[in-house]
Design a protein around this nucleic acid. Structure first.
Lengths: 232, 232
DNA sequence: TACAAATTGTGTAAATTTAACACGATTATT
DNA sequence: AATAATCGTGTTAAATTTACACAATTTGTA
């Protein structure tokens, strides 16, 4: 079994920062631990990589167990590998973030994991190095969302441009110019006008758009510069 | 010792794509293996993570053993985790790329590892999934170098703008407009005119610049858009 | 019923940046 | 002194960004 006899085998965990958006604020799906170690404290959702499990399969398994969703958008960030980062036993953590539509996931799955949506800005202290992981994940989200159309992953199928703008304002924690933002987004031609309008509005109803998935696929790697340096 | 008793410990390797630039072409520092498995074939430089070694320390160790250099610029790319990616035993590979000045490293270190500079474009077939790792590393290099001033890591202390341009042309494998490139680079104010001129030139001698390291530090995270979509 | 308040869609003009070029200067060689 | 190669800088039109204004829609209320 162990054919590289002189080398050390190490425990490998996956930890996931799940972002959601409730229309106003960025949220994290965090776990109130009802197991050891650090029972009763808050942590990211995670799990161990199994011996006969591809890394990508493990990532999807952890996300599915937490949300009941498949084909979630996720992105690897970094592997945390300080020797003493887990006081129980040395454990590597391969860290990634995921973006989900906060209203689409299975509440029962989350409940079964004792997971709750927590406001990113008011999040509790987390165990181990999980605070650093969240900080890094937010940085990466800000980085990627400025250049690539990943924000849509956080919104429902149909959404308005003002909703999209509120999302970006939450991601960058800063106001954006309504008129320039709208023009920028529409100029990408990634949005299709559904012909419908947002009904839950007390003022002028905004146009509902949906993502042009073909263009989204083909243009994903292009730089879109949604948010420029000066805008932030 | 094993305090998470039901979980599996896995062999963890680090594999490194070392980029260099000889003034004309991008090069890779590749290892002709004189050890098993796959003895005689080409591979990336790598090594196993030790039980009592921080991940970052291991990365620096591997790079130091190969080049004799410390404080090398490197960036984690991705962890390769297919169950059967190493036929000997399941091994995770945390993959990263490094940028070095091809003339500054210790040739003896490389020789001791049986490592050679190989033209990126004419590289041999590599073992395991190392070809995919190189492909991904080049993508990441192209991505990062378009936005952040990392190209300088591949050049000597003092360099000319035409040299820098040749580097970018090698990275993107496409010609750039000399005049627009120069203006773009100079407008970042990251370069300091040393007052000297390149001596090894048979025609007009170009101005030698060096990096303004303070500005480099402080502006590293800003987007510079060295290479725009349309330029590539 | 008309008006106020909030929000949405579209428009405009100046400033900046990019793209696509031209030209003169420098250096080793002939 | 002429030539060939390369380097630094300049120019201009087009495109983009920025910083604003204004009219239209919707609900609640005077």
């Amino acid at each position: 079994m162990n054919k590289y006899p002189h080398s050390t085998r190490i425990l490998v965990a996956l930890d996931c920062i799940v972002f959601g958006f409730d229309g106003e604020d960025l949220k994290l799906l965090l776990v109130k631990r009802n197991f050891e170690p650090e029972q009763g404290k808050w942590s990211l959702m995670g799990g161990f990589l199994e011996q006969n499990e591809d890394l990508e399969v493990a990532t999807n398994r952890i996300l599915y167990d937490l949300t009941g969703l498949k084909d979630i958008y996720f992105e690897e960030i970094k592997t945390f590998g300080k020797v003493d980062r887990d006081p129980v036993e040395r454990t590597l953590s391969i860290c990634f973030f995921a973006l989900i539509n906060i209203h689409a996931h299975n509440q029962d799955s989350a409940k079964a994991q004792n997971a709750y949506w927590i406001d990113l800005k008011n999040r509790p202290n987390l165990i181990f190095d999980h605070n650093k992981m969240v900080d890094l994940a937010l940085q990466e989200l800000q980085y990627k969302a400025a250049l690539h159309p990943i924000g849509f992953e956080l919104l429902p199928e149909k959404f308005t441009i003002p909703q999209l703008q509120k999302l970006y304002e939450a991601i960058y924690d800063s106001p954006l110019d309504r008129r320039n933002f709208s023009r920028k987004i529409l100029s990408t031609n990634l949005l299709i006008d559904t012909g419908e309008k947002n009904q839950n509005s007390t003022t002028k109803k905004a146009i509902l758009y949906q993502l042009d998935k073909e263009k989204y696929q083909s243009q994903f790697k292009a730089f879109h510069y949604f948010i420029s340096d000066s805008m932030r």
